[in-house]
Each structure stands twice: as structure tokens, then as C-alpha cells.
């Protein structure tokens, strides 16, 4: 049993069968990549995992518990954090404030009405947020407005915010999309470092093969809403079916 089990998941949008009979098992403490050409259903699958979409058929369970029908914030509280294709951070707030919010979410749950106590006097939250910023090498940016940072720093902050919640599964949706080479490599290094230091499972959806082959331990190839193959990076590289799906040499439809 993997930490995340996807069984026979299907999702239809009008006339388009976006996903059909998707089976996927992500092993605990692994780095699992899901790749596939445009329109293969990668993002739909991800959205089914985090509660943004509800699959028409099949089941998704995380650590043995079904996530279906739960709201995104509930699924997150179960231990799944998500990093978006374009960094989703609190742009109006400072870096430090950004970091305090997941710390609060971790301690106080999805809602708490602490309207009278002072946030800055809350040592536990302040210390933890500062510690996370140090971990991310962002202490010197703590008073910056998050929106004014570079793409790479925003990504770094977003990943840091996810880690502050101590998730057991981190989902990354094309974490290096639209990044310069240097930023991409920094992100790869950051993810490697996270993997080395923490007890965490990482699932990546990615276009960039450089990123996939630098990080992944297992790779699932998705094409036209179905998993094509699942194997180690070495075996995927030369796999004829993968070449076919990517290059469209003889697509069956």
C-alpha cells in the first residue's frame, strides 16, 4: 500500500473523457513524477487528489482514508500540501506574514477566532515562522512584500509555506514552469535538499524532462487520460510507448 492510492479514477468534462481507469500508487517517502504530453490529464488528476474536482468514478485514498467529497482545506489538513504552477502566495503580505499563516493553520486548525491575542507576541508562531525562513534561506527577505520578489523566490517561499505545515505528501504542479535555467536548478536543489532532510513523499507533475530525471525515483506516464507505463527513470527513457506518446509517431486515434 502506498501513501496515496488512486483506484479506477475516471473524470468526464462534457464530451471529453479527461481521465479513465487511472490507477496509481505513490509509495511512502518516494519522489514520484507524473509526466505526459499536453492534455494527457495530469492537472485533472492532480485536481482530483486535492479536492478541487470530484472524480466521476473510482476512489482516492490517502493513508487509508478516502479524500473524496472532502473540501480542499480538509484534505490539506489531512497532510497533503500543494504547490501551484504559478506560485500562489499572499502577495499583499510580507514574507514573514506569509510564513506565519501556515504555522497558524498547523497549530489552530482550519478556523479559530483568536481576535484578541497579539500575533507578534505569539512566540511559538513567530519562532517557527522564523525558523522556516532560515531553513529556506529567506530570513533576509522577511519584511519584503511577497509580490515584489522574483519568480524563483516566490516559488521558494511557497514551498516553504507548504513545508511549514509538515505535510506527509507534497504535490508539485510544474514547479519550474516559466523559470529561467538558474531558477530551475535552484528549485531542483531545493527539492533534493528537502527530500534529504525530511520525512516526506513528493509527487511532481512536470513537463521539463531535466527536472523529472534529476528528481524522480518512479515515473508514471499519462497519455489521453490513461496511465501508459510506470517505471524507474532509467527504463522510462528508452521506452517505445513513451516515445510514441510524446512524439505522436503513431497515435492510435
Amino acid at each position: 500500500m502506498g501513501i496515496l492510492e488512486v483506484r479506477d479514477v475516471g473524470k468526464r468534462f462534457g464530451g471529453l473523457q479527461a481521465l479513465s481507469d487511472v490507477n496509481l500508487s505513490i509509495a511512502e517517502n518516494s519522489v514520484h513524477a507524473i509526466i505526459g504530453p499536453n492534455g494527457a490529464g495530469k492537472s485533472t488528476l492532480l485536481n482530483c487528489l486535492v479536492g478541487k474536482l470530484i472524480p466521476d468514478t473510482g476512489s482516492v485514498s490517502f493513508e487509508g482514508q478516502s479524500v473524496l467529497g472532502r473540501k480542499p482545506h480538509e484534505i490539506n489538513q489531512m497532510g497533503i500540501s500543494r504547490v501551484f504552477q504559478t506560485p500562489e502566495i499572499f502577495g499583499d503580505l510580507t514574507v514573514m506574514e506569509n510564513m506565519m499563516i501556515p504555522c497558524l493553520a498547523r497549530r489552530d486548525g482550519s478556523f479559530s477566532l483568536h481576535g484578541y491575542r497579539s500575533l507578534m507576541a505569539d512566540r511559538e508562531i513567530v519562532d517557527r515562522a522564523e525558523h522556516m525562513l532560515e531553513d529556506m534561506n529567506m530570513s533576509n527577505k522577511r519584511e519584503m512584500h511577497a509580490a515584489s520578489m522574483s519568480r524563483g523566490d516566490k516559488r521558494r517561499l511557497e514551498i516553504g509555506m507548504c513545508l511549514a505545515q509538515e505535510p506527509r505528501l507534497l504535490l508539485l504542479d510544474e514547479p519550474t514552469a516559466g523559470m529561467a535555467r538558474a531558477d530551475t536548478n535552484n528549485t531542483i536543489d531545493l527539492l533534493k535538499e528537502i527530500k534529504a532532510k525530511r520525512n516526506i513523499t513528493i509527487a511532481i507533475i512536470e513537463h521539463d524532462m531535466h527536472v523529472v530525471f534529476s528528481l524522480a525515483e518512479r515515473i508514471t506516464v499519462l497519455a489521453q487520460g490513461k496511465p501508459l507505463v510506470e517505471d524507474t527513470p532509467e527504463n522510462i527513457k528508452g521506452h517505445p510507448k513513451v516515445r510514441e506518446a510524446y512524439l505522436g509517431e503513431s497515435s492510435g486515434h
Partner: peptide, 11 residues
Amino acid sequence: SNQNRLNYTGL
């Protein structure tokens, strides 16, 4: 600032 991120931060 960002309701999407808030949702995916468990709030």
C-alpha cells in the same frame, strides 16, 4: 490577498 492559497493551506 489569496483565497486559493488559503484553501490549500488548510484554512
